[in-house]
């Protein structure tokens, strides 16, 4: 079997690798000139946080996400299981209670435990939640690692190739083009996200930290060399326009509220991207005219791409059917 994967974002690369590892002859076509140039994966947070996401996402995402963490660890040494710390300021204590009520796999932590986990946050927060089993990675390094592995397996990504799945001919096609597939998948919509990369040498965090707030919940993910990713907004918009002043203010204020040292940080990068989502914000594997669309990963791209890739490969190679991803309205999709 020969398969063409369209799109070299996290979904496309994971699908291609999953197939190549099973000995399938794969080609990957990407419209962008280089990795990350034309998709939203480049601006992801890279939190592999299935249990935190339960707060707003339902059990399917948690299940796919939990399954994906080992996949990443086996293929990318930069994926580390170091947990997630969730904190809130004193006056936002009800937010912690609500978050705890919706999620799972955490322990409650007080001031001492927070200081032990993140010494630089000592004395700043008196209560929070610690999700020890969650992981994080640097999305850009992770994409590069997947592309490099594909190279080793003889499947280089071909960049700068604009193609619609209808024109690939008689090969099997997996379409992972996100919002690019909008014409074929009319119920897709865009949810814009905005992020910042801050550089700050004097502070270090060992894991992603989420700061709960009734209006502006935000997370800070540590990256190598003193970089911190601060994200991310969720705006119902299809256009990848530049960041708004308001979003910038919100992200910076939240980082500053986590630790005032962020006031001295250098703004290394401002990024925006548009995530593709279906109306229930849950992913789909959808077959249409010989093409298998893997889409609607919403804000969960790195979290669930491996689990979706596995299932896409099983659909293609073994004729499997996954109702929770392939039926339009299965009971698994409904929130509890």
């Amino acid at each position: 079997m020969r398969v063409t994967v369209i799109g070299a974002g996290v979904a496309g690369l994971a699908c291609a690798l999953e197939l190549a590892e099973r000995g399938v002859s794969v080609e990957v076509l990407e419209r962008g000139a280089r990795l990350g140039a034309a998709g939203c994966s480049w601006y992801a947070g890279g939190m592999l946080a299935p249990w935190c996401e339960l707060e707003s996402s339902g059990p399917l995402i948690a299940q796919l996400g939990a399954e994906s963490i080992p996949w990443w660890q086996e293929r990318f040494p930069g994926a580390v299981v170091n947990g997630t710390l969730v904190v809130a300021h004193g006056r936002d204590a009800p937010e912690v209670a609500q978050f705890a009520g919706r999620t799972g796999h955490f322990e409650r932590v007080g001031a001492e435990a927070i200081a032990a986990l993140e010494p630089d946050l000592a004395g700043r927060f008196s209560h929070g939640l610690y999700f020890a089993e969650e992981a994080h990675l640097d999305p850009r390094a992770a994409l590069a690692a997947l592309a490099a592995r594909l190279d080793e397996l003889g499947t280089p990504v071909r960049f700068g190739v604009e193609v619609s799945s209808a024109f690939v001919g008689r090969r099997h096609v997996i379409d992972c083009t996100g919002l690019g597939a909008r014409r074929e998948l009319a119920d897709l919509r865009g949810v814009k996200g905005e992020m910042l990369l801050l550089h700050l040498g004097e502070l270090s965090l060992a894991r992603p930290v989420r700061l709960l707030h009734p209006r502006i919940p935000v997370y800070v993910v540590p990256r190598a060399e003193g970089l911190f990713m601060v994200g991310a907004t969720m705006i119902e918009s299809d256009e990848d326009t530049r960041i708004s002043a308001r979003s910038m203010l919100e992200l910076l204020s939240a980082a500053y509220a986590l630790h005032p040292a962020f006031g001295e940080a250098e703004i290394a990068e401002i990024g925006t991207g548009v995530r593709a989502a279906f109306p229930d914000n849950l992913p789909r594997l959808r077959r249409r005219d010989g093409t298998l669309y893997v889409n609607g990963l919403y804000r969960h791209g790195f979290l669930i791409a491996p689990a979706l890739a596995r299932r896409a490969a099983a659909v293609l190679l073994e004729g499997r059917h996954f109702p929770e991803l392939m039926n339009e309205d299965p009971p698994q999709r409904r929130l509890a």
Partner: peptide
């Protein structure tokens, strides 16, 4: 204001 980012950019959400 919050959903649009200006003009008609929130079209996907608005059609819902």
């Amino acid at each position: 204001r919050r959903e649009s980012g200006g003009e008609r950019r929130g079209e996907g959400f608005w059609s819902i």
